[in-house]
Amino acid sequence: MLTSSPFKLPDEKYWIFRLLINIEERHFSLEEAAEAARSSIDFDSALRYLSHECPICNEQVSFNKIITMTHCSCAFCEKCFKAHFTTVIKEKSISHVVCPLCNNPDLKKDGNKEDVMEYFNLLDTQIRHYLDPEVHELFQSKLRDKTLMDMPNFRWCANCSFGLLHEASRLRMDCPSCGKSTCFQCRTPWEKQHEGISCEQFKTWKLQNHPEYQANRLARYLSMHGIECPSCGFQFDLSKGGCLHFICSQCQHEFCGGCKRPFKMDSACGFSRECHAKGLHAHHPRNCFYYLRDWDIKRLQQLLNHNRIPYRGSVREGSQMHAEGLCRVLEYKETIHGLTEEQCGQIAPAEYDGLCIKSLLK
């Protein structure tokens, strides 16, 4: 037990300090107890100083270990501040560097860019103080990239990591770093066939004539499974049964893969009355179509019948059911003569309209 003050406290403060450190199972250090005694007028106020609960980790921390965000009233402990912003800065885009409790401010909506930059400038002061130097440097690098990307004439080179401002009226943009070229509008590596034609015409030509696309039958595949960003036109490979919430890897535009509307959280969506509770158009993420891929055939049919949606293979009362046979879907099969197109040949139950289970799920 301490008999004298190791922190040069006045007598009235020292007795507050003594009461604090004699608390059984205390969670604070001697230095924190001395600071609480020095900053408080009595024991109760000193105890309150040391007993702030972090809403994220639920740990009791002292007042000087609580950080209040600059653009909202949310406050949490220094450890959670460092863990959250370190993870977000390292793993996500700069638009996600917001308060972990209220997700404010909304950095993705169109608004006053001066307010956004004011937020980042104030946050930069906190990050500089609490985060590791390399994380702070990464934050500044991403913030610099965001500032550049907001400029209408800025583009990244499609062949290397160099970015440049393109003022010329022509589509071809030459990179001074790698010496290769990029299309300013569709942001794809430049090819000589693009010269003199629009991006849409070039895309059509590439799907129909490019040897690499023909060899891999990519044109047919993309026509069935592709999805295009409504903002920049970049094309993606849409996985079957995948989530409809898309984030374009080129321009960071967030949209619904079904209707191409911009993705907005909660009631900001405005697509239906349930958006505020269920997210993207009231089916993401809680009722996302992604999970339908795990349903069995009968459950899927019941869902369609319940919503009165006709589908191929549905058997209605009074209709003639197809006899059970072999699946007639054409597939590419490898033979000694190379790839040949043949019928699937698996058993097709009568209620599946001539398709096997594997083909029905495609």
Rank of each mutant, 00 (worst) to 15 (best):
S4W: 03
S4E: 12
F7G: 00
K8H: 12
P10Y: 15
K13Q: 08
R18K: 15
L19A: 14
L20C: 08
I21M: 08
N22W: 03
N22R: 07
E24I: 07
F28G: 02
F28I: 02
E32H: 07
A36T: 06
S39Y: 09
I41S: 15
A46V: 00
L47D: 06
Y49L: 07
L50T: 05
S51H: 04
C54Q: 03
P55H: 07
C57N: 09
S62D: 08
F63P: 01
K65A: 04
K65Q: 04
S73A: 10
C74S: 05
C77R: 01
C77N: 05
C77K: 01
E78H: 14
C80E: 00
H84D: 09
T86H: 02
V98H: 03
P100H: 01
K109S: 09
F120T: 01
N121E: 14
L123W: 03
D124C: 14
H129E: 12
Y130A: 06
P133E: 13
E137W: 05
Q140C: 15
S141D: 15
S141K: 15
K142V: 04
K142W: 01
L143R: 13
D145H: 04
L148E: 08
M151F: 07
W156A: 06
A158H: 07
C160N: 05
G163D: 00
E167R: 09
A168S: 14
R170C: 12
L171Y: 15
M173Y: 07
P176C: 10
P176L: 04
C178M: 07
C178L: 11
G179S: 11
G179M: 12
S181P: 04
Q185F: 15
C186S: 04
R187L: 13
K192R: 14
E195W: 03
S198E: 02
C199S: 10
W205F: 08
L207M: 10
Y213F: 11
Q214S: 05
Q214F: 09
A215E: 10
N216P: 01
R217L: 11
A219L: 01
A219C: 09
Y221T: 06
L222S: 00
M224P: 04
H225E: 01
G226A: 09
I227L: 06
S231V: 05
G233Q: 05
F236S: 10
H245M: 05
F246R: 05
C248A: 04
K260E: 09
D266K: 08
C269L: 00
C269V: 02
F271G: 13
S272H: 06
E274Y: 13
C275H: 01
L280S: 00
H284N: 12
C288Q: 01
Y291I: 12
R293M: 10
W295I: 03
D296T: 06
R299P: 00
Q302E: 12
N305V: 07
P310Q: 00
Y311R: 04
E317H: 14
M321Y: 11
C327V: 08
V329S: 06
V329H: 06
V329E: 08
L330Y: 07
Y332H: 10
E334I: 11
E334R: 14
T335G: 05
T335P: 02
G338V: 06
G338L: 01
L339W: 13
E341M: 14
E341S: 14
E341K: 14
Q343E: 14
C344L: 02
I347Q: 13
P349N: 00
I357N: 10
K358F: 11
